[in-house]
Simulated assay, not measured.
Amino acid sequence: MSEKPTALFVCVHNAGRSQMAAGFLEAIAGDRVRVRSAGSEPADTLNPVAVQAMAEEGIDIATRTPAVLTGDAVADSDVVITMGCGDACPFFPGKRYEDWKLDDPAGQGIEAVRGIRDDIRRRIEALVDELGV
């Protein structure tokens, strides 16, 4: 792994789970890690309930834009984490790869999204410990 590891969070629409994970990793690890997120079929905008749930934690993801997943982003990342999207999330052989089984916040209310958010936070905290950053 490079001196400063790069983590890539991948989700189909890059509008909820992957954006929350990126927001938490940036907030917790700061500049000790490079953070990217992308989607195989990115949405036009972020999920507003995910934005609200993160704002409750003091993390502003409102200005983020869903991005398309590229081979270069994968190649430049030390850790690739998919968000439990099933077959819609590609597998990346040769990388440190994890698939986090997370409910999709799309169409869910704030209570459900808070639970997803809190699960993501716990996983990010464990990832930070594993990376030693």
Rank of each mutant, 00 (worst) to 15 (best):
P90M: 01
F24C: 01
A62D: 07
N14Q: 02
R123P: 01
I61Q: 08
V35T: 07
I120M: 00
L131R: 05
D60P: 06
S2I: 01
R122L: 06
V74F: 13
D87K: 15
C89A: 14
I110W: 08
D78E: 15
T6R: 10
H13S: 15
R117I: 01
S40V: 14
G86V: 09
A73F: 06
W100N: 04
A73Q: 14
L69I: 03
D129R: 10
D60T: 03
L131M: 11
F24V: 04
T45D: 15
L46C: 10
D31Q: 12
F24I: 11
F91K: 12
K4L: 14
P5W: 11
D129Q: 01
P93M: 08
P105Y: 01
A27S: 10
V128L: 01
C85A: 05
G39D: 00
T63M: 14
V10N: 06
K4Q: 15
T63C: 09
E130K: 11
I124L: 02
S40W: 04
A22E: 11
D99R: 13
D104M: 01
R123A: 11
F24K: 11
L127M: 04
A21D: 01
P48Y: 05
L69Q: 00
D72L: 10
E3H: 11
G86K: 00
M83R: 10
G86Q: 03
E111T: 04
I81W: 14
M1K: 11
D103T: 04
S18Y: 02
M83L: 06
V128R: 02
V113L: 07
G84V: 11
S37N: 14
S37F: 08
D99S: 12
D103G: 10
I81A: 12
T6K: 05
A7E: 03
L102C: 04
G86H: 01
I81Y: 07
